[in-house]
């Protein structure tokens, strides 16, 4: 994330024009928390940090909350509620409208080979469609390549943990340690954690699935994530936490 400016804004505030990126060739892209009121006003709708990216000519607001609002291309951890005629109804969070996941939106799925999901199962999926007045739609396959790219039903031993939305976003950053200030997963897998073997699937809807053969590892990683989120620990605090937890669980 190439960030030039960071400043805190409140809903309805006027944004300083010098902060708005102005690339003559590309159109300005507005992300979450900003609204365009024609003809020329850009107004924040939430309180948070205004982040701009001059390279992509985009701006958005980084904020933490517990209520998930689906938006297109988000990677989420959905829970199957039930199966309908040609789609599954999935829950992204208890407060959002159920999302639909078509039976054929899996890698190389046909009517005969589609995966059968039981109610309550977790699915790692992408939000394909999110409009304000429609139920969101999910997919487990990239529409352009036809590949799953790691999406699909989650199987194997493991457990899902709830975290705040801001923490989930920070975990999903390409350089989460530098930009997001979250190094807890690296530490658990590295020398501080004694090289624990586990895998994770982070959903933007504030759910993290941790999988491992050993239940002890899953509990340890889950606790480390939740504690980091709840106490808002920095890198040094996370290192201390990981050391403490590893010692405790031995």
């Amino acid at each position: 994330m190439a960030t030039a400016e960071r400043s805190v804004v409140l809903p309805g505030e006027t944004i300083d024009p010098s902060l708005i990126p102005s690339d003559p060739k590309k159109a300005l892209r507005l992300g979450p928390g900003l609204r365009h009121i024609p003809p020329t006003d850009i107004v924040p709708t939430v309180a948070g940090q205004l982040v701009t990216n001059p390279v992509k000519n985009s701006m958005w607001i980084e904020y933490n909350s517990n209520r998930y609002i689906p938006s297109q291309n988000d990677i989420v951890l959905a829970q199957v509620l039930r199966s309908a005629t040609d789609f599954y109804l999935c829950s992204l969070s208890p407060h959002t409208a159920p999302a639909t996941l078509p039976h054929l939106a899996f890698e190389s799925a046909t009517k005969k080979t589609r995966p059968i999901l039981s109610p309550g199962q977790l699915v790692y999926a992408r939000v394909a469609l999110a409009n304000r007045h429609m139920d969101p739609e999910l997919e487990c396959v990239s529409a352009s390549t036809g590949k799953a790219d790691g999406l699909g039903p989650i199987t194997g031993p493991g457990c899902a943990f709830d975290v705040s939305l801001g923490f989930a976003r920070r975990l999903l950053m390409a350089r989460s340690r530098e930009d997001g200030g979250v190094g807890v997963l690296e530490m658990l897998g590295g020398e501080e954690g004694g090289g624990l073997a586990f895998e994770t699937a982070v959903g933007r809807n504030g759910k993290v699935w941790v999988g491992s053969e050993s239940a002890r590892t899953v509990v340890l990683v889950g606790r480390a994530l939740q504690e980091t989120d709840r106490r808002g620990l920095g890198i040094e605090g996370q290192r201390r936490l990981v050391k403490k937890l590893v010692k405790e669980m031995r």
């Binding site: 829950s91 199962q121 977790l122 457990c159 239940a215 509990v219």
Partner: peptide, 24 residues
């Protein structure tokens, strides 16, 4: 009330059988 997912349900029981709880 929102039901917990299958993964969570199975894991809670599996962990308890190993004398483990999710909050340690």
């Amino acid at each position: 009330e929102a039901e917990p997912s299958l993964n969570e349900k199975q894991f809670v029981i599996q962990a308890l059988q190993e004398n483990l709880r999710l909050d340690g």
